[in-house]
């Protein structure tokens, strides 16, 4: 191996080792440590000057106390469960909203499609924070939605939407919608229109042609879209903290508060480790799906 090739591989490799893998090992280590009133606020810290004995002592002090603590305090497992539930429900709603839009885009005339594509991508480039923020003014008790509903006479008391799980659902569906639309649109757009004509020719109605042909063929896009929404939503922090209020439990928010408000680094690290373990299953499934799709397209 020549020097240039070695450098080419080594530079990004070492960067990722140092700034991705090592930090995560540190998280793992701190999750096994104890809280202490010190700087940094945990023990033990590794002191290499003591030689082998101190390393041994260091490992001897690590334990699973924090993980046991996570199982005992119901705040934690309830927020894990509620994260999963919120992620699952909002993924489903996003699919219900996103599929018709993707379908409509794929059905639209060729010359419209680039523009429609751009309109879907544009929000993705605008600040996530601002897009979530925009909903505060809409969902608040005196916000636009309540004003509108009062004006139409559907309700006569403002609805409490802000600071509820509903607001979180709305925020998630809104911000993650492009992630659902794009992969579904990609599969629908590739689909041969003659397939639908063939189905109709063979006696299908419009609806049954959709149900028997279009929908099954867009399955890879649906799966990809669902994972693209589900996985990041589990660890979501901004939306629950801006729209969800104190009653919405999501694990990303718990981790943040554990760290910044309680300054309990070992517990925050343990929360992070468990969150990651929770994410491994959907991530692996997603990778498999992507791989299978790639192989199929070759």
């Amino acid at each position: 191996m020549n020097l240039r090739r070695l450098l080419l591989i080594a530079i990004p490799y070492l960067w990722l080792l140092g700034l991705f893998l090592v930090p995560f090992l540190i998280v793992l280590k701190i999750s096994l440590s104890d809280t202490a009133v010190a700087i940094p606020p945990y023990t033990p810290t590794l002191d290499l000057s003591g030689g082998w004995a101190s390393i041994k002592e260091f490992f001897g002090q690590l334990d699973f106390e924090n993980f046991i603590w996570l199982t005992q305090d119901e705040l934690y497992w309830r927020s894990y469960l509620s994260s999963l539930q919120i992620a699952a429900v909002s993924t489903f709603i996003t699919l219900l909203v996103g599929y018709p839009v993707a379908y409509g885009m794929a059905q639209s005339p060729d010359e419209w499609r680039p523009t429609l594509m751009m309109l879907v991508i544009l929000p993705f480039w605008t600040s996530f924070l601002i897009r979530v923020y925009a909903w505060i003014g809409i969902l608040a008790n005196e916000g636009f939605l309540n004003q509108f509903l009062l004006w139409t006479g559907i309700i006569d008391m403002p609805l409490q939407i802000m600071n509820t799980t509903t607001a979180v659902y709305i925020g998630i569906v809104y911000t993650y919608l492009p992630f659902m639309i794009l992969p579904i649109y990609a599969t629908l757009e590739k689909m041969d229109g003659a397939l639908i004509e063939a189905a109709e020719d063979l006696g299908c109605s419009r609806l049954s042609a959709f149900w028997l042909v279009t929908l099954p063929l867009s399955r890879p896009g649906i799966i990809a879209g669902c994972f693209l929404v589900f996985i990041p939503v589990i660890g979501e922090f901004v939306i629950p903290s801006l729209l969800g209020g104190s009653r919405t439990l999501m694990i990303g928010k718990v981790l943040w508060e554990e760290f910044f408000s309680n300054r309990d680094w070992p517990v925050a690290s343990a929360v992070a480790v468990v969150l990651l373990i929770l994410l491994i299953v959907p991530i692996v499934l997603f990778q498999r799906n992507q791989q299978r799709q790639q192989e199929a397209s070759q």
């Binding site: 591989i9 990004p12 990722l16 893998l21 930090p23 680094w265 925050a268 997603f286």
Partner: peptide, 29 residues
Amino acid sequence: FPGRTLFSGMIYAPLVMPDVITGLSLLLL
């Protein structure tokens, strides 16, 4: 090359890693 799997894993993992974990781990580093 040796460690290629780890390398590609480290490329793809941050894409799905929740921000809170990435932030926390880097801060601790």
